[in-house]
Amino acid sequence: MIRSTMIFALLFSFAGASWADERTQKTIEARQGLLKVVAQYFGPIVGMAKGQIPYDAALIEKNAGKVAELAPMITDLFAQDTSGSDYATEAKADIWADYADFSAKAATTTERANALVAATAEGRGATMKAFGALGSSCKSCHDSYRQKK
């Protein structure tokens, strides 16, 4: 009886550990997916800023709006501390060491994406200036919290 209880306990603890692992992996994949979706909307505006694809204010307005909707999901998906996991991730443990700062940076990105939507009504110069501000808010987070190789 004692032995079978121990065996069951052991099996359940394995199952528990693997359930936690799978949850971590899914979280990490979801974050990577989210940021890839952000990049999909961001990319065409980069091409326009560099003059390599035609300027299209309507498309910038639409895409910046999507980025503004996606950016708040960053803090949703990073809420779980995965710093101890073995899964490949470029998220630095510093994120959870100072989650308030991380959240503030993500909030800045949302604000600036909304500002970019507004700026598209004010012409190309204002739009590109707002886009630069959005890009630098992305970068400030990558510089602090994305693992450099």
Binding site: A39, Q40, F42, G43, P44, V46, G47, Q52, I53
Partner: peptide, 8 residues
């Protein structure tokens, strides 16, 4: 070559 901005 230019980047593929539609699939960034």
């Amino acid at each position: 070559p230019l980047p593929d901005y539609e699939n960034y």
